[in-house]
Design a binder for these strands. Structure first.
Length: 471
DNA sequence: CCTGGAGTTGTCCTA
DNA sequence: TTAGGACAACTCCAG
């Protein structure tokens, strides 16, 4: 009997269209699915960490249906893998690739270590349609602008999906596993976990189900409804894509099918999937996008960096007195997500009206979003702030009041998330006060705050600062 | 190397 | 009421 193979699980919590798992199963060996709690996972934001824990528990259940399970271990990945190899006699390790600089460096090191001992280490493209080094401009560089990137990939052939394994061969004896519950991955969520839980779409089955419903029912109205924050007009799949509960390939093929059938919103949906690819393209080629101004000139811009600034606190707490901003911030706290339009508005407000550094917003999103993704989050914030590639022009300052009239004329979104102004507040709006930390000392009886910064004055101040930005 | 068209998501003023 | 242009300048990218 051949020696077992270790399948290292990272952000690919699915059985369907999982190239590394497929490879492991096809090898004919016994497969040992392994998840490692290493320093990177320990440092995840509160909501993403909690959500990852839920995803892992679900995946473990899925694996059990086909005769397998997850071995949970904590420690440095090299050491953990080494130990598991010793304990099981495995001669091979496989995984789906990640593209952030820290993971890349780590994985490269592990690959070298294993190769030096004549052990097989194989990695696969499971998280992206178009890996960053396979897309380049005519001059051979990477893309800095979305539209040419889109044009470069839109007609590419995308490989078929890998089928789900019907059965996964188990080792004759399972190695010991830690208990994921002991890791307390939801600890930092505090009492928010109970509130957010009903909003989670957990696991590959629900994700595929949502993709089908979206393509069959919602995609036709996607061009208009995706901009309305009070309705589910988007696919809402970011949460599942972030953890690999659905693959971009599944989205791509589904979208292509809809396009072929003449569904109105199909192309926009495909473009959105490619925006995710573009974010990874940028992160791969310019990793500094994650933590400093992509355009270094912006280092001179006088954003406020004090995270304890009362304005920053008001922004985080959804108490700026600007309805659209506050509704969106509360939506994030209660549901673990935020509508795309909300993200643009709160980001414009923080960086332009309040003149606060985009890093403050980026870090807060990293704590709060269950669909948090390093590449998309960084790109989005830098786009809003103006410091990023292909960014919005400096004079484009969102007016949260105008936006409300345009995209929420009946006040439905506000009713969903703001309790104070309402005789009979909605349950979601009330639940905000149950989700937030008790230390914030807020309750729905406090009255809605007056605006900490007027739309007009904030706009003028921002335009001034951005015009004389000193470079 | 040069050239020219284009660049996710807005706002405000004017005619 | 509505439609169109200004708001900057620059970089990107294909040809």
């Amino acid at each position: 009997m051949p020696q077992p193979i270790i399948y290292w699980i990272r952000r690919d919590l699915r059985l369907h269209d999982n190239p590394a798992l497929h490879y492991a199963v096809q090898s004919g060996r016994a497969v040992i699915p392994l998840f490692i709690m290493d320093i990177q996972e320990k440092k995840l934001g509160a909501a993403p960490k909690w959500r990852l824990g839920l995803g892992l528990e679900y995946l473990s259940g899925e694996l059990e249906k086909v005769g397998s399970k997850i071995i949970f271990r904590s420690g440095k990945p090299e050491a953990v893998i080494d130990e598991l190899i010793c304990q099981t006699g495995a001669e091979s390790v496989c995984w789906n690739r990640l593209y952030d600089p820290v993971s890349r460096q780590r994985d490269e090191g592990i690959k070298k270590c294993l190769a030096a001992r004549s052990l097989e280490a194989t990695s696969f493209a499971g998280a992206l349609l178009f890996e960053p080094w396979t897309v380049s401009t005519g001059a051979g560089g990477y893309y800095r602008v979305y539209t040419p990137f889109w044009n470069a990939v839109k007609d590419r052939e995308v490989q078929c999906e890998h089928p789900s394994p019907q059965r996964i061969k188990a080792p004759t004896e399972w190695p010991v596993s830690e208990k994921i519950a002991d890791w307390k991955m939801g600890q930092a969520m505090g009492r928010g976990a109970r509130i957010v839980r009903p909003f989670v779409r957990l696991g590959q089955v629900a994700a595929v189900d949502r993709l089908s419903t979206f393509l069959d029912e919602d995609a036709a109205q996607y061009p208009d409804r995706r901009n309305i924050p009070s309705v589910l007009g988007t696919s809402g799949l970011s949460e599942n894509l972030a953890l690999g509960e659905i693959s971009p390939k599944q989205c791509w093929h589904g979208g292509q099918r809809a396009l072929y059938e003449g569904v109105q919103g199909a192309e926009i949906f495909l473009k959105e999937v490619v925006w995710r690819e573009f974010a990874y393209h940028l992160m791969f080629h310019t990793p500094h996008i994650l933590n400093s101004n992509w355009k270094p000139d912006w280092d001179k811009f006088p954003w406020k960096t004090d995270e304890d600034d009362p304005a920053v606190l008001a922004w985080k707490q959804g108490r700026t007195g600007v309805l659209f901003v506050d509704a969106a911030m509360r939506e994030m706290y209660v549901s673990g997500r935020m509508h795309n339009r909300g993200r643009m508005i709160v980001a414009s407000y923080l960086t332009k009206h309040l003149l606060c550094h985009w890093r403050i917003g980026q870090k807060w999103f990293e704590q709060c979003l269950i669909d948090w993704d390093p590449a998309s989050n960084a790109m989005g914030w830098q786009w809003s702030a103006g410091s990023g590639p292909d960014a919005t022009p400096y004079f484009r300052v969102f007016n949260a009041e105008t936006q409300l009239e345009k995209f929420d004329p009946k006040g439905r979104y506000i009713k969903q998330w703001i309790a104070e102004l309402d005789q009979t507040p909605s349950d979601t709006a009330k639940s905000f006060f149950d989700a937030i930390p008790a230390g914030w000392n807020l309750n729905s009886k406090m009255g809605y705050p007056t605006a900490i910064m007027s739309m007009k004055q904030g706009r003028e101040r921002a335009l001034n600062a951005y015009e004389t930005r000193g470079f």
